[in-house]
């Protein structure tokens, strides 16, 4: 099955997707409300965390957009509490937080993050990624035998990577990293997660291994390795396989 992101714009399981925006800033909240509604989602915007949590259980949104700096309950606690009873994807918005904060968020229930000020198109792309992931985990995962992005396609059954129908030779580790990125396509994945999945838990802190590996993959797959288009760096956090190119 080929994945084309623009296909299911705003649609999840054949109905309009519901987006819950939790942000105490009125200007940003309203702007998001307008922007997302125009894109074709059903949007609800609330200005406090408690209401946000209530709506997750009662209104059942498909994606939650959460401001990190909320007055009562901060983003991290919000994610931790929601994860106790819900798997709804959460995208966190933050002004400037340290790498450690972001990593902590990602390992405590947040699915992605976006730094303010952000571009509306970027937010919509992230929402679509989350919607696609939910759709896929709902259906069986095995149907993804072939994954395509840009001019590259990965055949998981044959462990084969093709670029413009020409086979690209990847080392086993490179293939595993690419596969891990592809299964999380569009989402940020942390260094630790990739290292743990590919090299093993004891290599969790060996960032250098991963950097060397990614550099080689970029040389093989990217049209311009110095300005990566597919395997982009998430500064200080990890990598993201960009699929809307």
């Amino acid at each position: 099955m080929n994945i084309n992101v623009s296909e299911n714009n705003g649609v999840s399981h054949g109905k309009l997707a519901r987006i819950l925006v939790v942000d105490d800033d009125e200007a940003i909240g309203k702007a998001m409300h307008i922007g997302l509604t125009k894109t074709g989602y059903i949007v609800k915007w609330v200005g406090n965390s408690k209401q946000g949590m209530e709506l997750i259980s009662t209104w059942r949104p498909d994606v939650v957009i959460l401001d990190y700096e909320m007055p009562e309950i901060n983003g991290l606690t919000f994610c931790q509490q929601v994860r106790l009873w819900s798997q709804t994807p959460i995208i966190v918005l933050s002004v400037r937080s340290s790498d450690e904060d972001k990593i902590e968020l990602l390992s405590n229930g947040a699915d992605d993050y976006l730094v303010k000020p952000f571009n509306m198109n970027e937010l919509i792309a992230r929402i679509q990624v989350e919607l696609r992931h939910t759709a896929h985990s709902a259906v069986a995962q095995s149907c993804d035998a072939i994954f395509t992005f840009g001019d590259i396609s990965i055949n998981f059954e044959q462990r084969q990577v093709l670029q413009k129908n020409v086979e690209v030779h990847l080392t086993p580790n490179e293939y595993e990293v690419l596969k891990y990125l592809a299964t999380n396509a569009g989402r940020v994945v942390t260094h630790q997660n990739i290292l743990r999945a590919v090299w093993g838990p004891q290599f969790e802190d060996e960032n250098h291994y991963l950097r060397v590996c990614i550099a080689q993959m970029r040389r093989k797959l990217e049209p311009e390795a110095e300005r990566p288009r597919y395997i982009v760096t998430e500064p200080g956090i990890g990598y993201r396989l960009k699929i809307n190119y």
């Binding site: 340290s98 790498d99 960032n207 990566p228 982009v232 760096t233 500064p235 200080g236």
Partner: peptide, 22 residues
């Protein structure tokens, strides 16, 4: 001071240029 670590300058340049590009 923000924590410092060994970090590839390649990634810094790419990210900075992406930022300027957008």
């Amino acid at each position: 001071a923000a924590p410092r670590s060994l970090y590839p300058i390649n990634d810094v340049v790419a990210t900075a240029l992406d930022e300027l590009d957008t």
